[in-house]
Design a protein around this nucleic acid. Sequence first.
DNA 1: TTATTATGTTATAATCATTCTAAATTAGAA
DNA 2: TTCTAATTTAGAATGATTATAACATAATAA
Lengths: 136, 136
Amino acid sequence: MTLKKTYHMKLTPQRLAILEYLEGNKAHPSASDIYKAVSEKYPMMSFATVYNTLDTLRGKKHVRELSIDSQKKRFDPNLKPHHHLICLECRAITDVHRNFALDLTDSERFGYEITGNHVDFYGVCPKCKRGRRSKI
Amino acid sequence: MTLKKTYHMKLTPQRLAILEYLEGNKAHPSASDIYKAVSEKYPMMSFATVYNTLDTLRGKKHVRELSIDSQKKRFDPNLKPHHHLICLECRAITDVHRNFALDLTDSERFGYEITGNHVDFYGVCPKCKRGRRSKI
DNA sequence: TTATTATGTTATAATCATTCTAAATTAGAA
DNA sequence: TTCTAATTTAGAATGATTATAACATAATAA
């Protein structure tokens, strides 16, 4: 009952498997990452179900869709406002939990009504740094 | 000669047309925006040429590829470091020329070597604000 | 329960952005 | 002017995502 109250949607086995995979997942997975993982348990699972479920989860604000990767959408079950630290070599994404109060001047605002901001930090992750060194 | 020295690549009519379209373009166009605009002048122009040209321009650091839009890549000929103000309703993108010196603490850095940052401001542009009002 | 209805799942086809391929063309160097 | 590597082209291929329609299942009411 408690899950049902949390999610306000029918909790089918497929959806539960997807939710379980997403729960606490910090990897910012793509639809195909999710499909691959979940279809090991549920081989009959369809790709369409992954997309449908992500769509309703997004509609109910249980996941956020990221456009960090220009190849594919990635999804984030972490709804707390946060920012990202992105490895330019392997595209790994790490969360940064901090609030940046960034203000724009009137002339920078161009008449927009501003509702939020998101910061991407770019760099090289420790793994890729090690990889580089070993190539020298 | 001067263009050739600037771009360090063969300057075909197709490439010149694409460069002319991009010059000073602040709309952050997608490949198909570019194709549509340029193929009016050069009807024989191929989509592949647009992608090829964007690819070599990116390689030579004459345009930057943006992953702001999860539907398609968008391209920015403005190479000065800058940030974006994005309309959540019509996806218009406006440049913000300011430097934000954002520092992460060691514990926030997770061992990454940080090379830069980019801020997206989200909101509603003046046009869409007007559109809303007229619907009431 | 059982019947009814609404919603979810599935396989498959369709779409759209992007990349690849191989043949024909051309810019720029010699 | 000639030559060659780089570029362009149409079209096929790929990969992510969305749409469709038949089928299955969960929620609801009798």
